[in-house]
Computed example of a mutant assay.
Amino acid sequence: MTDVVRLDAVSKVYGKGQGAVAALREVTVGIPRGSFTAVMGPSGSGKSTFLHCAAGLDVPSAGSVQLGGTALNGMNETQLTELRRQRIGFVFQAFNLVSSLTVVENITLPLRLAGAGVDRAWLAEIVSRVGLEGRAGHRPAQLSGGQQQRVAIARALVTRPEVVFGDEPTGALDTMTARDVLTLLREVVDGMGQTVVMVTHDPVAASYADTVLYLADGRIVDSMTAPTSEKVAERMTRLGAWV
């Protein structure tokens, strides 16, 4: 499998002089196309910074980031915005839906912002895959939290992105609803060949991934394939996350 996202010696420093804080330190990793990767670590380990640099939301202080062979280094904010809009999907803990828009209008919003047409067959397939048939005309207030996150996932998929980044996508959901959403993300990878990179603090959420990357003090200190929630929790304890 080829890498859809590649970080080479990526460092990110916030601030200057004595107040400078290194959030990432020379991180090198590749994310294979068609894989599900979870990123874990203690609070302050650099998880969010990793996601922001990998997704072109933040510019590294050093090192390089590639998306599908395109180097993000040297791109200006306009170019990065266009790249994110066309080639990256985002799912956040807060669903970030527009309350005045229907389900379908929320899903297709990225296309309208980009001035692109809507492929009706693709839209119907996505709505079906995320289990929102019969809800297309509803507004967010008429949906449960789990349904709203399904809308957010559908919105992330509608542009056929090369990778979907999730920042604690199940953090605001109850346990049963979270499992439904994680099962959906797993199906997106297995059934649609999508690539998902998810930051999470939840060992159960991480167990749905193919690989777990562990961050501590801005570095990748370990990785785990075929994770179980028990193995993930045990490894996190040794990172000092829950001591």
Rank of each mutant, 00 (worst) to 15 (best):
L83Y: 09
V4H: 00
K16D: 13
D3N: 14
G19M: 12
A62G: 14
T37G: 04
R85Y: 12
A9G: 14
L24D: 01
A22W: 00
G46F: 12
V59Q: 00
V5K: 00
A9I: 12
P60K: 07
C53F: 05
L57S: 06
G30P: 02
G17K: 11
A9F: 09
K12R: 11
G89D: 15
G69Y: 08
G56R: 00
G74W: 10
R87C: 00
A55K: 01
G56Q: 02
T28Y: 08
Y14R: 13
A9C: 15
S35T: 09
C53H: 02
R6Q: 15
A23S: 12
T49L: 02
P42L: 07
S48M: 11
G56S: 02
T37H: 11
V4P: 00
G68I: 15
F92P: 01
G63H: 01
F36M: 08
K47E: 09
G46Q: 13
T81M: 15
E77F: 03
T28C: 12
D58W: 01
G46W: 04
L72A: 08
V21C: 04
S61T: 15
G63K: 00
S48H: 13
G56F: 01
V59Y: 00
A55P: 01
L83R: 14
R87F: 00
Y14H: 14
F36I: 04
N76G: 14
S35N: 05
S11N: 08
L24S: 02
Q66Y: 02
P42Q: 10
R33P: 09
S11W: 02
G69C: 12
F90P: 06
Y14E: 13
A55F: 02
E26W: 00
V5H: 03
C53E: 07
P42F: 08
P32L: 06
G63E: 05
V10I: 11
A22V: 10
R25I: 09
L67P: 10
F90D: 05
F90S: 09
E77I: 03
A71M: 11
V13D: 06
S11E: 01
L7W: 06
S11M: 02
V4R: 01
G34C: 12
Q18S: 09
G17N: 11
G74K: 09
T2S: 14
A55V: 07
T70H: 04
A62H: 12
A23Y: 05
Q79C: 10
Y14N: 10
G34F: 13
I31Q: 05
V21F: 09
D8M: 01
